[in-house]
Structure formats: C-alpha cells, structure tokens
Amino acid sequence: MLRFLLGRIAILIPTFLGVSLIAFSFIRMLPGDPVMLMSGERVMSEEKHAQIMHDLGLDRPMPVQYLNYLTDVLSGDLGTSIVTKRPVLGEFLSLFPATLELSLCAIILAVVLGVPAGVLAAVKRGTWFDQSIMGVALIGYSMPIFWWGLLLIIFFSGYLGWTPVSGRISLMYFFPPVTGFMLIDSLLSGQAGAFKSALTYLILPTIVLGTIPLAVIARQTRSAMLEVLGEDYVRTAKSKGLSPFRVVGVHALRNALIPVITTIGLQVGVLLAGAILTETIFSWPGIGKWMVDAVFKRDYAVVQGGLLLIAGVIMLVNLAVDVTYGFINPRIRH
C-alpha cells in the first residue's frame, strides 16, 4: 500500500512541474502588459513604464524569470498580486473556503438526491418514473448553468423575492471568520438567525453548481445499479426470497457505489470549472470569480499562482480518489 502511495506521489512531481511551466508560460504569452492596464486611459511615460516592469522583474529573460518563480514557489511564495499588491497565497487562502463551502454543498446536494434517484430509476427500469427521472437528469446534464443561474435569479429573487440575490450572508451579521465556512461560522457566532441567513444565501448557488454533478451521479448510479442487478449473486439473493429492500439496499447498492464514488471524485474538476460561472453570476467571493477577474485585469501573478494552486487541489483530490479506490479494490494497486 505504501509503495502504491509513493508511486502515485512520484508521478505527481513531473506533472506538477509541467503544470507550473504551463501556468508560467501562458501568462507570459498574454497580450498587453499589466502595467499598461493599471494606468487605463491615462498615459504613463515610457521611463516610468520601464521602471515598473523592472521593479516587477518582468524585464528579465524568460528562463531566469521561470527559475526565480520556481524557487519562490518552492519556498511558499506565490508572488504578489499586481492589482491589489497583496500576496497571492494569502488571497487564495482567504477566498478558497467560500468556494470549498459552495462546492461541498453542491456535491452533497448531488449525492443526496442523485444516488436515490438513480437507484429508484434502476429498480423501476422502463417505467414512466425511470423515464422521467432520466429525462430530467439529461436536461440537467445539458444545462448551460450560467443561463440556469440567471433564470433562477429572475424567478426566485426577482419575481418571488424568496432568496437574496448575492453574497454569503446578510450584512446584518458580522463576526470574524473562524473556519471560513459561513454555515459553521454563523453557528459559532451564536447570533440568532445568522445560520438561517447564511443558508438562504447558499441555496441558489448550490442548486446551480450542483445541477450537473447531480445529473451525472443519477445517471451513473442508475447504470451501475442496472449492471449489478443483473449479476448472479443479486439474482441468487432475490431467488432466496430476501426482501427487495435488502437486495437493493444491501447487496446491490454497496457494489454499485464503487464506480459512483469514482464519479464523485471526478466531479471536482467539473465543480471548480462550474464555480467560475456560478461565482461570477452570484458575486460569490470565491476563487472562481477571483480567477476570472484576474484574467481580465491581466493580473499575471494571480492567474499564474491561481492556476498552480487550483491544479494542485485537483491533483490532490485525484490522488485521494486513487488511493481510496486502491484501498477498496486491491486489484488495481498493481
């Protein structure tokens, strides 16, 4: 097991180097320089421009810049945002909990609704129930979520006025972050109504972000269940007269869940990509919006550091999925 784990980690090292090289070189290829962008319509003198480029180290040869960058990264310094002039790592860490909270809620929503829906659809295969569940799932899977978010805002916030439009919690409540998760922090703060407020702010973004994973999980669960239900041991269990609930719940589901768990792991990248759109629509102060803003503001340091950190997160999650999978299913360790 240890060898398996070490092997996996060893593979990550060249991947990480490649990721850092890509992040670095992409950013250098961006047209237009950030110093120009800082001054906008106002024209900066050539000398001043050159001097700031020099201060930021942007005038050195590329390989030197890359090596400097790599050494800095390895010592935990991901650079300073060109726009806000604050450390990139600090900004990432202060915004990441918001994205993580939203993503976790979305995945929980997807699992809680998706797995039972998939199981039921499989059990009632071919009925109108199965067909409508799968129809809805396919619609969810095909959904342009940026549009979906706008529709939900128009309807629930605009027309019905049920949910707040954007933000993480009502501005009435103010407490220092402990965990960075608004739901937990609002409970810790002990302020009456804070938790409920945080929850109402979370609902629409969670639905929007959870839609595609929900559809994928429901479909995956259904097909995994169908496969398992066709296996001999399930048929045997059935023929032995075990209650259908036991057959499905205990024997079939347990085995069907293995590929479903992998699917859930694979949704992390999907979630982070979805977070880019969801956070943009709901002004959710997370890393997705942070990255989009940085791309538009040509904040080299943030785009570069953000790409690296996000890729790092995905790689770690994939590693965790791999390891879990290897743990459940020893055959693939080799």
């Binding site: 890509i22 992409f26 982070l272 990509a273 880019i276 990255m291 989009v292 791309v295």
Partner: peptide, 13 residues
C-alpha cells in the same frame, strides 16, 4: 498535466 486544470479555466486562460 492538461487534465489537472479545470477545463473551462484552462480554456479561458
């Protein structure tokens, strides 16, 4: 390496 990035983010950059 390519798969280590969220696809939309990579496409955006």
């Amino acid at each position: 390496i390519v798969l280590a990035f969220p696809s939309l983010l990579l496409a955006l950059v």
